[in-house]
Nucleic acid binder design. Structure first.
Length: 893
RNA sequence: GCGACCGUGGCGGAAUGGCAGACGCGCCUGGCUUAGGACCAGGUGGGGAAACCCGUGGGGGUUCGAGUCCCUCCGGUCGCACCA
């Protein structure tokens, strides 16, 4: 690379022993120049009203302004920028906006630590990062920039919240949050490890019941399972499907039995996906926090039950869910009645049953559920087998739960998280497997249902319960409503006022935005500084005018990112969050790029917001992003996540200073497939540097030669100038064909490799009589055009110099049309055919391209090596692989 | 445990079921140089003097033909994790 001597040789020696006729490639001398020029010409501002060209909304996940860009940002942004440039060369009106995800904890923590204002910290970081983003040569539409901590942005978070509130999509409810005794409430990600400790002080985090604000994402659960019309990677769709966790089954009503202390007759509802196993329910388990626990507990059990409830309340959810934990629980001294056979079964509480899922109560069928089995074994409870493979011995003792179920006999519906993931398995395969299993699993010990296939009984039992009013088909989701309250300063204030008379009153729209106070005491004792800011807190109730207090919770910052791409279209609109006409013209986003770590949270919230905003009449679309691409993650050289604390962060500015932005861009694209990422290693960046030097040399100095080139000035052995010219023409167009396909599919590594091949070929002809001829010129031009989206600066510079040399007026390479493919150039006069005998490669023969199969067979069978390989045996048949790519002679046995 | 993805030279990685290892790094040889961590040319999967043989995590299968498709085992990465 050119860089090494930069400091030592101070440019007086050009590194080529003083022989070269051209100055060397100095990225530092050309890159800022062109960046400035592009900005001055406003080359990349998008006219959103221009309908003369097809629109292309290209979106990349906006960064958090953490302080500076790291190489991972470049890894996302570089190819995204290349897509933008490539689409423009195809005549699309490309919109590539950028902004900053500017609310969040790091700013607040930095404020506490350094005693500066979170806003100042954030805005300073944004300024730094803007400069870095410009240094990459990325073509962002800066005039559409959105900064989420700007009141002009977050007021619309508040406005949307009020609309959600009106619609019943936002509500307040009491729930448990993580609470650190020293630092107050913590976000989920601030609680570390399985022992749940505070990341700052290391104290054990506890749960606190607090009134919190929620958004009703579960209302859209089934809609969110429908991925129709969007082209997203399977892994993301699968993760979202699993996260939503739709389970269809039945809700079944058990009644409590009368006892000495109790009249009985209370209804206990359970959710099960296996109503077919109802006869095997030998006990019942309630979550410790189940509302009926206190009422049902027998007096003599009270002490023990209370102790268990207290004990599990002290535990975190993580502890409770830990799989390897032993089952614990206590009987509450009451029984329930199995509605299907009238059996009295004991009721337990146990923390393996979650209060937040289903009905917070289960019927336990130990024979057919591993967890229930373990519990029954520990507590010596009966285990009754009720389904089994046809022909099995119903009385054989079970050593483990038999959980095999008869395919999917639940009602058809959206994809669920167990088993059948929509369309991924072959349908026919599923049907046959399903049918077989369905017939093979039969009922036993189940009264009138005994002997029937379990799949039938599933439905019959549900209908029979339904008739008696003791149950119904039901669907449950793992997905819960979105808790958006954060007891933090640096976020969007939730626009609500609490009045003793009127309750929680929405802030009137005319009073928006509820501004974050500029100066607060964020140095305080760890709770939300807003809660101590009397000026902020005290307001009159908008309804009755009495003294009232503001809500002090702020919104989860995922709210900001749930609709920001709509705002890019009208960032300064002051009478509403979005411009519905622009939204109609420009969304859904054509291509979204970003990391897979947002597969569930951000991408699910964004889909929810879009659907909710559609229902509010704000937008016309049900889906935000038509196509999604998840690039891989760049890790530190040690294979770990890059982080300042690990000291494995690669500073991109340093690389740009050494190698230039184009080389860094190209190297990131060349490393490997974009969706793969991998450990960072700068070894090899010199390779793309060499490539750029070569482009520089062949463009500016076709007739030059490098010192010591032994083949310099001479065409390859046996090659005429005619042949060389034809080869250049063919190679240029073959490269164009392949590179175009690679751009379309984001295969940057092979794209760069193919351009390297073309430049290697031209380099071989440099200084020979073939150099500088028409075909040479054409190949160089194609090479520059094809490279332009990936390495925008060097190509712009060389393009300008070519124009200048030809006395033509300057026009940016980045407004040129993508070259047209000349199909005729691809045709070769001859082709080389590999010859296999019994599938093994034995020989190759070069024949005229129009050789017929029959003629080719004749030629092939006369080849010396082929005859030898055939060893006197006769061909049974001869395979011609597609289009004469290969011949395979299959011999008789 | 469940789900998804992935195993190819010393390294990053190529390869619509059809010549395995494109392209690059590194390394070797030579050239050019006062010099080179610059530049140019050639070579570089393993074994073998060669003919040739062997090679895409292991084993099986489908096929004229498998890195690619199917089954199975082993190893790795990510996500979920008592969700009834």
């Amino acid at each position: 690379m050119t860089t090494k001597g930069d400091t030592e040789s101070t440019g007086q020696d050009n590194g080529h022993g003083g022989r070269s006729r051209i100055e060397r490639y100095e990225p530092a001398a050309i890159e800022p120049k062109w960046q400035q020029r592009w900005a001055d010409l406003r080359l990349y501002d998008t006219d959103l009203d221009d309908r003369s060209k097809p629109r292309y909304y290209l979106l990349t996940m906006y960064p958090y302004p953490s302080g500076s860009l790291h190489i991972g940002h470049w890894y996302i942004i570089t190819p995204t920028d290349a897509i933008a440039r490539y689409r423009r060369m195809h005549g699309d009106n490309v919109f590539l906006p950028i902004g900053f995800d500017a609310f969040g904890l790091p700013a607040e923590n930095a404020a506490i630590k350094n005693n500066i204002n979170p806003r100042d910290w954030t805005m300073a970081n944004i300024e730094t990062m803007r400069g870095q983003l410009r240094s990459m040569g990325a073509t962002f539409a800066w005039d559409a920039e959105v900064v989420t901590c700007d009141p002009d942005y977050y007021r619309w978070n508040q406005w949307l919240f009020l609309r959600f509130l009106e619609k019943g999509l936002a509500y307040r409810s009491v729930s448990a949050v993580d609470w650190c005794p020293n630092d107050g409430t913590l976000a989920r990600e601030q609680v570390e490890g399985t022992d749940r400790r505070c990341w700052r002080c290391g104290a054990q985090v506890e749960k606190r019941e607090l009134p919190q604000w929620y958004l009703g994402i579960t209302n859209y659960a089934d809609d969110l399972l429908d991925f129709g019309g969007i082209d997203w990677p399977d892994p993301v769709r699968i993760m979202q499907t699993n996260w939503i966790g739709r389970s269809s089954g039945a809700e079944i009503v058990f009644e409590t039995a009368p006892s000495p202390h109790h009249a009985g007759g209370e209804e206990l509802r359970v959710f099960t996906t296996r109503p077919d196993t109802l006869f095997g329910a030998t006990f019942m388990v309630l979550a410790p926090e189940h509302p009926l626990v206190a009422a049902l507990t027998a007096p003599e059990r009270k002490a023990e039950v209370d102790a268990y409830v207290a004990q599990s309340a002290a535990k975190t959810e993580i502890d409770r869910l830990s799989t390897d934990r032993d089952k614990t629980g206590v009987p509450i001294g009451a029984d329930a009645i199995n509605p299907v056979n009238g059996a009295r079964i004991p009721i337990f509480i146990a923390d393996y049953v979650l209060g937040t899922y289903g009905t917070g109560a289960i019927m336990a069928v130990p024979a057919h559920d591993e967890r229930d089995f373990a519990f029954a074994q520990k507590f010596g409870l009966p285990i009754v087998r009720v389904v089994m493979p046809r022909g099995a011995d119903p009385d054989a003792p079970l050593t483990e739960a038999f959980v095999e179920k008869a395919a999917d006999f639940a009602p058809a519906g959206p994809p669920e998280h167990h088993g059948l993931l929509g369309g991924i398995l072959d349908e026919v395969d599923l049907l046959t497997r399903g049918r077989t299993a369905t017939e093979q699993i039969v009922m036993v010990n189940s009264g009138e249902f005994t002997g029937r296939p379990a799949a039938e009984a599933w439905h019959q039992i549900v209908s029979s319960l339904e008739e008696q009013g003791k149950g119904r088909q039901a669907v449950t989701y793992r997905l819960r409503d979105w808790l958006i309250s954060r007891q933090r300063y640096w976020g969007t204030p939730i626009p609500v006022i609490h009045c003793e008379q009127c309750g929680a009153v929405p802030v009137p729209e005319r009073d928006l935005p509820v501004l974050l106070p500029e100066t607060v005491d964020y140095q305080g004792s760890g709770d939300n500084p807003l809660a101590r800011d009397e000026a902020f807190l005290n307001v009159p109730c908008p309804q009755c005018g009495a003294a009232a207090r503001r809500e002090t919770d702020t919104m989860d910052t995922f709210i900001d990112s749930s609709w920001y791409w709509f705002r890019y279209l009208s960032p300064h609109k002051s009478d509403g969050p979005v411009d519905i006409d622009k939204v109609r013209d420009w969304t859904p986003v054509d291509q979204y790029t970003g990391g897979a770590e947002h597969a569930v949270m951000h991408l699910l919230y964004s889909r929810f917001f879009t659907k909710a905003m559609q229902d509010l009449g704000l937008v016309h679309e049900a889906e935000p992003f038509r196509r999604l691409f998840n690039q891989g993650q760049i890790l530190g050289a040690d294979g770990e996540r890059m982080s300042k604390s690990r000291g494995n962060v690669q500073d991109p500015d340093e690389l740009v200073a050494r190698y230039g932005a184009d080389a860094v861009r190209l190297f990131l694209m060349f490393m490997g497939p974009w969706d793969q990422g991998g450990p960072w290693s700068p070894t090899g960046i010199g390779g793309v540097g060499k490539f750029l030097n070569r482009i520089w040399a062949i463009t500016l100095d076709p007739h030059g030669r490098e010192p010591g080139d032994p083949s310099g000035g001479v065409l390859p052995e046996g090659e005429t100038e005619e042949v060389a010219r034809h080869r250049m023409h063919a190679a240029a167009h073959r490269t164009l064909r392949d590179v175009t396909a690679d751009y379309e599919d984001f295969r940057w590594n092979t794209m760069v490799a193919k351009l390297m091949e073309l430049s290697n070929l031209l380099s071989r002809y440099r200084g020979t009589p073939a150099a500088g001829r028409r075909e040479w010129d054409e190949a160089v031009e194609l090479l520059l055009l094809m490279l332009a989206p990936a390495a925008p600066h060097i190509t712009e510079e060389l393009w300008a110099r070519r124009l200048e040399a030809r006395g033509e007026a300057w026009e940016s390479i980045h407004v040129q049309r993508w070259p047209e493919l000349d199909e005729r150039a691809l045709a070769e006069a001859t082709r080389e055919v590999p010859i296999q005998v019994n599938g093994k490669l034995r020989d190759k023969v070069t024949v005229p391209s129009d050789t017929s199969e029959r003629k080719l067979e004749k030629i092939v069978l006369e080849r010396e090596k082929v005859v030898a390989a055939m060893g006197g045996r006769k061909p049974a048949r001869i395979i011609h692989a597609g289009g004469g790519r290969l011949v395979n002679i299959v011999l008789e046995d």
